[in-house]
Nucleic acid binder design. Structure first.
Lengths: 192, 192
DNA sequence: CGGGTTTGATTGACCCGTCAATCAAGTTTC
DNA sequence: GAAACTTGATTGACGGGTCAATCAAACCCG
């Protein structure tokens, strides 16, 4: 009993790791299963087919991310602090792992062929946007929606750029700082 | 005579188109060849292997883009105008085609496994960055490099976001406007 | 010019490895 | 002992890459 969720978790983690290592979705179920220490048949037993495995991995990453943002939001007070928390969470250590970034990038690709993947990604974007707008409103008023668009785009863009660089690690911080700088400048410009 | 370059061009275009249609690099050489109206063996004859076909497609896109930027730069005068030209070129009709965006996204994925693809992408990023810094310098002084990083990230991010949206077409213009707005706000903030 | 030869263009058929998915049988667990 | 769990073996399809062979145009030589 209760072995099932454990196996599922193992397989999901192995999937993310393997996608990170390969850098693409060209990952065989056997590779995933081997890394998880089980047979490929078991993966099919639990998930049905390969796409479900990928989707489960994607949900896992999104769930972790969402939890991180939620934590940062409740810990902060005032719109500015909340925005900062959001941004920092986006570039936090667990989201900025090499394999997580690679997986993330590949989920964008997956979204082009899988409706469900597209849906999941849309949920992420809508939530990010909604969070940003909510806390930008008191600071930027009517400019909030457009500004949120820019900040969201900047976050995604910096993320994407770090998906390449094989050298840079550890600078989720630098990226987060860039976003916050952009935010400050935008607000300052607005104030005059 | 001169039939070879024609075939190569056909195959390259077919590759981009096919990647755009599939939304991934899971494209068989046969599919590409069929769309180009030749046999798969011919594709291998000219390009050697599949990766070379992809790389040729990538170079093609980058070349078109570079030409467009160059054109915009010579037509503009003054740093501000040149920056605007650069941004507009990035979101111009030929770069913002559905299949070009999809191909672009997938080249990021390819770059994770192909050194040459990674190199090509780096060249693009360096050139963009260098262009931006060059024309930002007179406007932003020492803040130019960091600002260029943000603008470049924003461009990539907006590009990425439009790689998903199946609905949105035609708004290269809107995206370009967002980048220019960000630029204006940044400069205004800098002016204090 | 006109037959013969080289050279590039092009193909269909084929080989071989890989991989998703299945299945029947074995093992654990309660 | 049955239900859940797990596996190795197998299969059927598919795709990259090769090869031997055709085709056509250009080139050469008398």
């Amino acid at each position: 009993m209760a072995v099932e969720p454990k196996r599922r978790a193992q397989l999901v983690e192995a999937t993310i790791h393997e996608i990170g290592a390969t850098g693409s979705l060209n990952v065989t179920v056997s590779q995933i299963a081997k890394r998880a220490g089980v047979s490929s048949a078991l993966a099919f037993h639990y998930f049905g087919d390969k796409e479900q495995i990928f989707l489960a991995a994607m949900r896992s990453i999104l769930t972790v991310y969402a939890a991180e943002v939620r934590g940062a939001l409740t810990a902060a007070d005032g719109p500015r602090a909340r925005l900062e928390g959001m941004v920092r969470a986006s570039f936090s250590a667990s989201n900025f792992r090499r394999d997580a970034i690679a997986a993330w990038l590949n989920f964008y690709v997956l979204a082009r062929t899988s409706d469900e993947a597209c849906r999941l990604l849309s949920v992420y974007q809508r939530r990010l946007r909604s969070n940003l707008v909510h806390d930008l409103r008191p600071l930027a008023g009517d400019a909030a929606p457009a500004l949120a668009e820019r900040l969201g785009g900047l976050i995604d863009g910096l993320y994407l750029r770090h998906a390449l660089d094989p050298a840079t690690d550890a600078d989720g911080q630098a990226a987060a700082a860039q976003v916050l700088t952009a935010l400050d400048h935008e607000l300052k410009a607005l104030a005059r």
